[in-house]
Write a protein that binds this DNA or RNA. Structure first.
Length: 568
RNA sequence: GCGCCCGUAGCUCAACUGGAUAGAGUGACAGCCUCCGAAGCUGUAGGUUGCGCGUUCGAGCCGCGCCGGGCGCACCA
């Protein structure tokens, strides 16, 4: 189903051709209701290009615009804007159409791409902490939205399961492992033995050497060390999986760094052979001398000691995703500090002749009350598990207060939906680059732009249908008499315009904003227009608006990875 | 030193990529339940968009220069 925006853009393009003018400008939502529903700056753009009077050009365009089927006569305003006001019947007809559209007005992308999206990426033998929320939740939402838009999405968890820390972990495992503690809380025990080994290694060069020897043995394929490593990975993955279940985040594959291990030598050899890489100070490096910002920042792909590092792994990863997974585009979701690294990796890929589209999608940090990176009082990272558990506990307390008559099992389920939803939404409703201050009170508030507010709006709609006790039947006609009805219907028609914009710059917060505005419009409608007590044909028409609101709220939240409860 | 990101109402954040008089929420104040969930709604108040030049018919957004904060810059990932 073509959106109003797309329809008007098409009509504008036709008018420009008919008026013998070049393509210019576009259609965007009006900035103010006084200016109608949509506006075009085409005349202003052309006026600049041609040095002509903008209002005269606007008139020339309007003379050729054939939009009377959908709009009141377009108006020329201000410096030369063309304003479009949709006819009420047009909105009503579109709303009726939306009711029959499974996609709720969201068209699939013109060309479907295979997208490999890399997000989350926790490290083995370390607990996931708050910092993982953003990458995980953002990547998941982008993957959901891309899939819905018809792309072929492969979700890959690039787990940090290989690296120098395993020397310490294995040494610790062999010397200080407490099996009972491991059974109790595997990752805590792995962290403990790692720290123990690390502390001793700092104090004692012999132990440092022993750790390094364990690492070398692991890398050489020693069966004992490999077995220990494998067990660490298995234990960690199990723990990650619990968090992913709670977050409702799922992957198509989990190719850890170790997966690429036997390809690293080939990568270096190939890059040397093609002279993309060279040897410098004993290390194999790629220089970017002709790129000013990177001129003094070489990328090391083999260390002087012959070892490989994460740059090597990431070059191999790009290879794999393009050659084996046939990616048209690769999205990597990580914090901003890795920006330089991926700039280098992508540049190497381009030099190797890869034409895929590479996107490093960065994000800001989660801060504590002190505006510094969120930490516990003792200065440790805050465990993800603790955050999620507390979210559910806090939500449960609120549900118990507000709705004590609900059965226990319902309240437990609702608390989970609200608590987890609140944490996710607090993240996604914000521009991804800004650092934000973590606040339980704000994210769990029922007021303002929060998950509970949206979930409550959904519950209110659903409650109407429970009360009605009848199955929804599409109405004979949509009637938009009250301004609140028209306002809500207009908003419902915009869903199809908003969803694709999210991928333009990877901004789920645009969808979150839309849903918030939709909930506002619904509440305005709800206060002004009684549904069940109204006379036909208003009653059926209003029920239809409720039904669509519920569908779009639920689906919009789902695209953000958030559930909507039936009661709360 | 170089590079990237951020700076918007007291506070927390938007602003659909250059559009018209910069919007919400929160806090404060004033209203609205014989009526579908008041977990809601309506209204009032709050601004030199860090500062200064520039480009443009038009700048929170683009360019240059400052000021503040964060992060990154050769063998950790």
């Amino acid at each position: 189903m073509e959106t109003f925006q797309a329809l008007l853009a098409r009509k504008l393009a036709e008018a420009l051709v008919a008026a013998d003018l070049p393509a210019a400008g576009g259609i965007e939502p009006a900035t103010d209701p006084r200016f109608g529903d949509y506006q075009s700056n085409a005349a202003l753009v052309l006026a600049k290009q041609r040095g002509e009077n903008p209002r005269a050009l606007a008139q020339r365009i309007v003379d050729h615009l054939a939009v009377e089927e959908w709009c009141e006569s377009p108006e020329i305003a201000g410096a030369g804007f063309i304003n479009f006001r949709l006819k009420v019947e047009t909105i009503a007809a579109r709303t009726a159409e939306l009711l029959r559209d499974e996609r709720l007005g969201v068209e699939k992308a013109a060309s479907s791409k295979r997208i490999v999206i890399d997000f989350g990426s926790p490290n083995v033998a370390k607990p996931m902490h708050v910092g993982h929320i953003r990458s995980t939740v953002l990547g998941d939402a982008l993957a959901r939205i891309a899939s819905f838009l018809g792309h072929d999405v492969i979700r890959d968890n690039h787990i940090g399961d290989w690296g120098t820390q395993f020397g310490m972990v294995i040494y610790g495992w062999k010397n200080f492992l407490d099996r009972a503690a491991l059974a109790q809380d595997p990752i805590a025990e792995l962290v403990r033995i790692y720290k123990e080994a690390n502390n001793r290694a700092i104090a004692d060069p012999a132990i440092r050497e022993a750790c390094r020897a364990e690492l070398v043995k692991l890398q050489a394929g020693d069966p004992d060390n490999f077995g220990i490593w494998k067990e660490c990975v298995t234990l960690s993955l199990r723990e990650f999986e619990a968090a992913y279940q709670l977050l409702d985040v799922h992957y198509d594959m989990q190719r850890g760094e170790s997966f690429y291990n036997d390809r690293l030598a080939g990568v270096v050899e190939r890059l040397l052979k093609s002279e993309i890489a060279e040897i410098s100070e004993g290390a194999v490096c790629v220089f970017f001398r002709e790129i000013p910002d990177l001129a003094d920042k070489p990328c090391i792909i083999r260390k002087r000691d012959g070892g490989y590092n994460y740059a090597t792994t990431d070059v191999a990863t790009v290879d794999y995703r393009i050659q084996d997974l046939k990616a048209d585009t690769i999205w990597i979701v990580t914090g901003a500090p890795q920006q330089l690294h991926f700039q280098q990796i992508f540049e190497i890929a381009r030099r190797e002749g890869y034409g895929a589209d590479f996107q490093h999608i960065t994000h800001g940090s989660i801060l504590g009350d002190d505006r510094k990176l969120m930490k516990t009082r003792s200065g440790e990272n805050v465990a993800l598990r603790d955050v999620l558990d507390e979210a559910v506990v806090r939500a449960r307390k609120i549900v118990d207060e507000k709705n004590p008559e609900l059965p226990e099992s319902d309240r437990a389920e609702i608390a989970k939906i609200i608590g987890i939803g609140a944490v996710k939404y607090a993240d996604l409703s914000q521009y991804r680059m800004t650092d934000y201050i973590f606040s339980w009170d704000r994210m769990l508030s029922f007021q303002g732009n929060t998950a509970p507010y949206l979930q409550n709006a959904y519950v209110r709609v659903r409650s109407i249908f429970r009360k009605a006790g009848e199955a929804f039947v599409p109405p004979a006609a949509i009637v938009l008499a009250a301004p609140e009805e028209k306002n809500l219907a207009t908003r419902l028609c915009q869903f199809g315009e908003i969803v694709p914009t999210v991928l333009r710059d990877f901004r789920p917060n645009l969808l979150a904003n839309y849903l918030f505005e939709l909930a506002n419009s619904f509440h305005g409608f709800y206060e002004a227009c009684s549904v069940l007590k109204s006379e036909e044909p208003a009653r059926s028409s209003r029920l239809a608006l409720c039904e669509l609101t519920a569908r779009i709220l639920r689906h919009g939240l789902k695209l953000l990875g958030i559930d909507a409860p039936e009661k709360m």
